[in-house]
Design a protein around this nucleic acid. Structure first.
Lengths: 208, 208
DNA sequence: TGTACATCAGTGAACGCGCGTTCACTGATGTAC
DNA sequence: TGTACATCAGTGAACGCGCGTTCACTGATGTAC
């Protein structure tokens, strides 16, 4: 018995909605994300999503939570065997790499469309990925009194500002044409990111 | 003859629309910005804006252009008498200060709601403020071969990523509660910003 | 200083549109026996 | 292996809503003489 072209049951519509949402945000921006457009793209009636998401904000929260989980994984996966400074650089690379690989997730995670307050699972996933980031930054700092609360805050802020700014400018296409001839011009971009991350990692590691 | 409470003619409705738009974006986000809501707040019929803006995107463009003009002014106003490194720090401060003073403008200027391609006056204002930024960064670099195109790109990217990341994280309230106990907690925030800007300015000035 | 008149800057009703959400429904799937 | 039945995951029509935009209109303002 041959499989019908469009089975009544989708199979994994929940995840299909999430990943299609990420694609849509990546190509058209958060403001273009509607449940009806997603349903259209998935070839499903526009009421189908209610079986998987209570409402639109639940879908956004699921997408963001998935993003924070993956970001934490990405950070944890950064090689830790080598020197703290190298590890810190890996951390920064991981953040920017994540943003570039999952631009739709990133935009929603750090956009303003999420409902406030965030549902528990999202708040937890976010807190978890930030803790992971924080721990990696602290580990790269010199020991002793250089790890005062003040110093830690400054290091965190510096590291976060650089990687977040880099990711944001890249995703939003701000570097073209002033700093980059085109978005495909990936090699000079890598060099700029490497340089910025290197400066920050060296600074934090030396702990001046 | 006493002034009527609501004169038929507003006086400067065009600018009123722009500044009310900035306020609305600041408090409720870009997605809450609608012509009808602005009209409501200004106590004017919802068709009144058509006399001043062809459509909604024209209003957004005007708001963004005004923002870029002001940002360029802010950068130019940074004291230039002192050392290049000090001047570079002033530049960074100016960028972050602008974002905090005009959060509504900033969000629209760097958001994704602007029509593409941008109208000429907006494109020009944007290019002008970026050039101003770039010139200030280059001026702070050591002379000679340290000013190669590659080095300039790297310095620009580093400086921009830090201030843009800082501004974005602050405006989006990302620092609370991990790095800041509350948004009003302005003193530790100033210190973090100062530190980050100082690190970057020193790096660019020394030109390693 | 008055008057005629063009232009400017508002009003308010109406439009079509796409949205999120709800609802009764039905086909598909899983399970107990 | 077959059957009865509960549950799950879809459909499609309908809803009310707020939006941007258009339109004929009118009151206010500015200007020529």
């Amino acid at each position: 018995m041959p499989r019908v072209a469009r089975p009544y049951h989708h199979g994994d519509l929940r995840n299909a909605f999430i990943s299609e949402a990420a694609k849509l945000v990546e190509s058209d921006g958060v403001h273009a994300l509607t449940l009806r457009e997603l349903s259209r793209r998935l070839g499903v009636s526009h009421a189908a999503s209610t079986n998987h998401f209570a409402d639109k904000s639940a879908l956004l929260a699921a997408l963001a939570a998935q993003g924070f989980e993956e970001l934490a994984q990405e950070i944890l996966r950064a090689p830790s065997g080598r020197s703290p400074e190298v590890r810190l650089r890996e951390l920064g690379r991981a953040y920017v790499r994540f943003a570039r690989r999952r631009p739709g997730h990133f935009r929603v995670m750090f956009g303003s469309e999420l409902s406030d307050p965030a549902p528990t699972h999202l708040a937890e996933a976010r807190a978890r990925s930030l803790s992971t980031f924080r721990e990696a930054v602290v580990a790269a700092m010199p020991e002793g009194r250089a790890r005062s609360p003040q110093r830690i805050r400054e290091a965190m802020f510096l590291a976060w500002a650089v990687v977040h700014g880099a990711a944001t400018l890249i995703l939003d296409g701000r570097l073209v044409p002033q700093l980059l001839s085109s978005v495909e011009d990936t090699e000079p971009l890598e060099k700029m990111v490497e340089h910025a991350i290197g400066v920050v990692a060296a600074e934090i590691h030396s702990g001046t």
